[in-house]
Design a protein around this nucleic acid. Structure first.
Lengths: 343, 343
DNA sequence: ATATTTTACGCAATCGATTGTAATTTTAAA
DNA sequence: TTTAAAATTACAATCGATTGCGTAAAATAT
């Protein structure tokens, strides 16, 4: 690549025999510069193919008009949707998005956050990785005066803006739906309990049992089953119990639910008549499987919108006395074939 | 958010009674500074919670260690996978990613590109939107001395680095597979022909007919069928012909193929015995449908890797005499239930 | 015609880090 | 002990845009 000297405001100024300050003002549409010269400057800037150097501008202004996003995986439906939702709003406001992937790795997450701090982003949006529960790096963000918004997977102990799903309620509804459908032995595939979202989903599961006065069967709760493979593994264990479950709530994800479905199909167990299945997250494939999978929609794009709007709302809100906002989005149970016993 | 004065190298210098230049050199691990002072500086920097201001650094150095990515949709499997693939490599090299969505809108694409130029990114990676075929904005990137890498959907007339799939070959193989499976009337759902990828896929389709000496039936070629809905619409038209097709190659995407499958199911047409279906892109759902859909894998993550590696390879390659590289990745036909007549 | 207010523009500092060159100190050689 | 060479550190300019302040010029009022 050949090196190109890019035109600066000084080049424009020199060509017109004026100062850079006037050029700068003109390009920022300041009222301090005469309309005619302003036009002339803009015209010349265009002719010289001038592009403002955002680095210089940001350095001077002490802001970057950039939002950093840290997520476990970009190529996971839920997260890419949230990003799309964020982008939708930030784009309109002229903000940029720097995306970092933590790969569910705590160390990488810390590095990502540090990079974003270095970049002087105006805000960091994060959904923490499953790995580790030390949040010093997030505290550090706050210490640097950078807005921090957590979404979905949040570190609860940190007082920051948060956008979350009401996981308890969603799980509660899902399990209630199963109980009302006549399922008696409802198993739970749970995720890493250091993540609050999975803790809450378990809470909702237990809450439903209590509400319907049904005893919880401990052996039907399977830890750490949050991929398709682990879901399948857990299912095989569950189904080989002396008293196997007649329904499985894959609270971690639809992927896990897919694993359940696969095993059921492989074992010739009929869904939903012999086994009810409920997933989580409304992945696009969940309505395509046969039977289609009952799941919970998290309104991921809307969640992204909410995150972005929250940021812009808080900008210029110097009132630090108020407690940081927590916005809870109510997910929706989507009932499909995998739990429709009389369908 | 309260304003925080961040510690700079001057703060460190002052505290230690030395100059900022030494601090800078120490933090960049220059050999020009004494080991002991270096250690001291690093320790102090740590104590003061110093974070380098990348903006200032980049401004001075005239580079940004940032790569801009412009894609039609973040939340589309193929693209988010490519991004993940890019990120995998760039992260290791300490580069950042700024992601922009064009939303398939040409004007927005132009704006995104301009923003990235302003940001002084070192490279712009783009897959052009379906809308419009004016590529002045891309020429502009080159004029600014910014590396430009196109992938998948490329503007062929522009001489830039490109990473593409061999669409002709993939289509050719897919259609050959159908012909060899005994399908006689193979329809094509094609995409917007201003995008070269769709033109190439059609080319491969035609090439297969020629190779097998089968006449092309024009009425079986349906334009602009690249969403699930449009695919379904096209399928309904095709199946209501006096002589309907016995196979449909949804060359645009698996979504389109899904539309085909839905219509076939709704009309009680058996797949693959009465109708063969082949999609494109190997979306995750394509192996879950029943029957599962034969499709073409584009190795999207690997494609992202390739893009990133290409960039780093070209860095410091000042030899502008060589023609820009075009890397072609061979996609793979994945044969599944929807075309297995004897399965 | 003079005084006063606006308007328009120039000057120069600033944001924070980097880097070529000069100055100083340390080390090694004579 | 003196001198040359090497290692450190300081100085100051630079990247490009922004902005407070000052001033000249133009417009308005007296």
């Amino acid at each position: 690549m050949k090196k190109v000297k890019r035109t600066t405001i000084y080049d424009i100024a020199e060509k017109l025999g004026i100062t850079a300050s006037s050029v700068s003002r003109a390009l920022n549409n300041s009222s301090q510069v005469n309309e005619k010269t302003k036009e002339l400057i803009i015209k010349t800037a265009d002719e010289l193919n001038y592009k403002r150097n955002t680095l210089a501008s940001n350095l001077r202004k002490g802001q970057s008009k950039t939002i950093g996003v840290v997520i476990p995986r970009i190529n996971q439906n839920f997260f890419s949707n949230v990003i799309a939702g964020i982008e939708e709003i930030t784009y309109q406001k002229g903000y940029n998005l720097i995306i970092c992937q933590s790969d569910e790795d705590h160390d990488k997450e810390v590095q990502c956050v540090n990079t974003l701090i270095n970049q002087h982003v105006d805000c960091i949006v994060i959904s923490v990785s499953a790995d580790g529960n030390d949040y010093q790096h997030l505290q550090n963000v706050l210490d640097h005066g950078i807005q921090l918004i957590q979404f979905d997977r949040v570190a609860e102990e940190l007082e920051t803006l948060k956008v979350i799903n009401d996981n308890v309620q969603a799980s509660y509804e899902a399990v209630s739906h199963l109980i009302e459908g006549g399922y008696k032995r409802i198993a739970l595939l749970e995720g890493p309990q250091n993540l609050s979202i999975f803790k809450q989903r378990k809470e909702g599961y237990l809450k439903a049992f209590k509400a319907y006065n049904v005893p919880v069967i401990e052996e039907l709760i399977v830890e750490n089953a949050w991929t398709k493979e682990l879901g399948a593994l857990g299912t095989r264990k569950l189904l080989s119990l002396p008293q196997p479950p007649d329904a499985i709530f894959a609270s971690t994800s639809d992927f896990s639910a897919l694993g359940v479905l696969d095993v059921a199909n492989a074992m010739g167990i009929k869904v939903p008549s012999e086994l009810g299945i409920c997933g989580y997250a409304n992945e696009s494939f969940s309505e395509i499987t046969s039977p289609s999978i009952t799941t919970i929609d998290q309104f991921s794009i809307y969640m992204g919108n909410t995150v972005a709007n929250l940021f812009f709302q808080e900008i210029g809100n110097n009132d630090t006395t108020t407690k940081p906002k927590i916005i809870s989005i109510k997910p929706e149970l989507i009932i499909r074939g995998s739990t429709k016993r009389n369908g």
